[in-house]
């Protein structure tokens, strides 16, 4: 995101959160956004392309669907009287195709909020993501579902 666009977006968020869209407040928000962006100017990434908006929206929709599904599944699991019999927790090594730090961070966050999985750590060489799963009945299928679902979509968005 470049400087001008970033500061305008942040100014709009400022106006939304302080609940007033007057000109003075927008200018104040823009000034604060400018200062905040100036502090991190060395870390600003390359400009985001708007053509990716559709893919980002698709990723967001998939994410909300999976979040609802996972919460419902955990809820049903907790309610079952024979919960311990159904619980097969395990730590799984998930081989990463995603390379950059941003991709891995996003993937780890999404994995945490999706059914039955929780990311624990990344190996030193950033090739393996360790995932804790609630019920490991089929390890290969679980790895495949993450790789085909979120990971491929994230790589598409970042490409």
């Amino acid at each position: 995101m470049n400087f001008a666009l970033g500061s305008i977006v942040l100014a709009l968020i400022w106006a939304a959160i302080t609940a007033s869209f007057t000109l003075l407040n927008l200018i104040l928000g823009w000034a604060i956004a400018f200062m905040a962006l100036w502090l991190i100017r060395k870390n600003l990434a390359s400009p985001v392309l708007f053509s990716k908006a559709r893919k980002i929206v698709a990723l967001g929709a998939l994410f909300f669907y999976e979040l609802a599904l996972s919460a419902i599944r955990v809820a049903f699991l907790v309610l079952k009287p024979n919960m311990k019999a159904q619980l097969k927790p395990g730590f799984i090594a998930f081989p990463l195709t995603a390379k950059s730090d941003g991709e891995i961070t996003l993937l780890a966050n999404l994995i945490t909020l999706t059914p039955g999985t929780l990311s624990v750590d990344v190996s030193k060489d950033k090739k393996v993501l360790y995932v804790h799963a609630l019920s490991v009945t089929d390890k290969e299928a679980l790895i495949k579902s993450i790789a085909d679902g979120f990971e491929s979509k994230i790589i598409e968005v970042f490409k």
Partner: peptide, 24 residues
């Protein structure tokens, strides 16, 4: 249900599932 999960699940890692998903 998140609170019930925190109480019923057997270890730290499984409890984390209940807190982070159902709670959110």
């Amino acid at each position: 249900l998140a609170a019930v999960g925190i109480l019923r699940l057997p270890d730290i890692y499984t409890r984390m599932h209940a807190a982070s998903k159902a709670g959110t």
